[in-house]
């Protein structure tokens, strides 16, 4: 195999793995806890922007230019996204599950708005460029650069995966599942479902923010158009294809869906004339929307069965009485 091909493969896989991290974050929120996040794009964006602002060198007309190390950016991105997730969780989780969905949707619209318009902080529509890339001194050698980054991101996926697997099996994870199954019983044990859910939502937000930061540094530039609601759809498709509640499934689903996505994009580029490519691209979005619905409809045994046990209580549905 040619080095160019290998370098492309490394690039592709690295991108897919950054999505795998987002997917792991979503799995904490949805798979483990049953919280519906419609604003994934916002949490990823916050992580990306925060890290970019912390690490980029001074730029004219923009606040920031702190030039801090990349690792600091990653932590900062995760922390800010966690803070946002905490605030959203605190505001809505005490109310109703559906208000969380609506509010996260609002967050994604608002973060997009801020990214576009708060030019002094975010660079506006042009975004932020010259974000330092890990192993930037290897940039001359595409293959070495690609492989080094792949190794780094793969290591992050692995560490996140191991931590989450540990958490799932920890007392914290068990109680989380317990309230998912039976809120009243968990309350009787003295566990506050509300706080546990907020914790889980915050943790998921932190992971998404981390993924956003990693992505930003890997690509080297960010702009508001990278964080459209599309990402949210993609990540949901990834998690559902992989199987929610299952961390390995989340990683696998991310790679699979990303591969399909990249492949179909190339197919469109190759088969449609330049004039009608935008049209063909929108057809691709139709398919992803239909696919999301279709998976929800035709695979009730995998996903839905698991989800169903979750929520007669959790979502305020009445358990049918079996009183007599």
């Amino acid at each position: 195999m040619s080095p160019e091909f290998l370098a492309y493969g490394a690039f592709f896989l690295t991108m897919a793995l950054t999505y795998a991290i987002i997917c792991l974050g979503l799995n904490v929120q949805w798979g483990q806890t049953g919280l519906f996040n419609v604003g994934i794009a916002a949490f990823v964006a916050i992580g990306a922007y925060a890290s970019a602002i912390l690490t980029t060198p001074d730029a004219a007309g923009r606040i920031g230019g702190f030039g801090l190390p990349i690792a600091v950016g990653w932590v900062g991105g995760a922390a800010l996204s966690a803070l946002l997730a905490f605030l959203v969780g605190w505001l809505t989780i005490r109310l109703r599950a559906d208000y969380l969905a609506i509010t996260t949707f609002g967050v994604s619209v608002s973060v997009q708005l801020v990214a576009l318009n708060l030019v002094g902080l975010t660079g506006g529509p042009f975004g932020i460029t010259f974000i330092p890339r890990p192993f930037g001194d290897l940039a001359g050698n595409a293959l070495a650069f690609g492989l080094a980054n792949l190794a780094l991101v793969a290591a992050v996926v692995l560490v996140t995966y191991l931590i989450l697997e540990r958490l799932v099996r920890s007392p914290w994870g068990r109680v989380l599942r317990a309230i998912r199954e039976d809120e009243i019983a968990a309350q009787a044990l003295g566990k506050s479902p509300k706080w546990l859910r907020i914790q889980a939502f915050t943790l998921g937000g932190a992971i998404m923010g981390l993924a956003g930061a990693i992505q930003a540094h890997f690509i080297g530039f960010i702009a508001p158009e990278n964080y459209l609601p599309m990402i949210t759809f993609q990540v949901w498709a990834m998690l559902i294809v992989g199987g929610s509640g299952n961390n390995r499934g989340a990683i696998l689903g991310a790679i699979l869906v990303w591969a399909l996505w990249a492949l179909s994009g190339q197919l469109i580029e190759a088969t449609f004339p330049a004039g009608s490519q935008a049209r063909a691209a929108s057809l691709r979005l139709v398919l992803i929307g239909v696919a999301l619905c279709a998976i929800l409809l035709v695979r009730p045994q995998g996903i839905l069965r698991e989800v169903r046990t979750l929520s007669r209580h959790a979502l305020g549905r009445k358990q049918p009485e079996v009183s007599s």
């Binding site: 519906f36 759809f233 979005l285 139709v286 992803i288 929307g289 999301l292 619905c293």
Partner: peptide
């Protein structure tokens, strides 16, 4: 809600 989200996209 998720299904409605997918339907809106489509």
């Amino acid at each position: 809600v998720m299904a409605s989200f997918g339907a809106s996209m489509a």
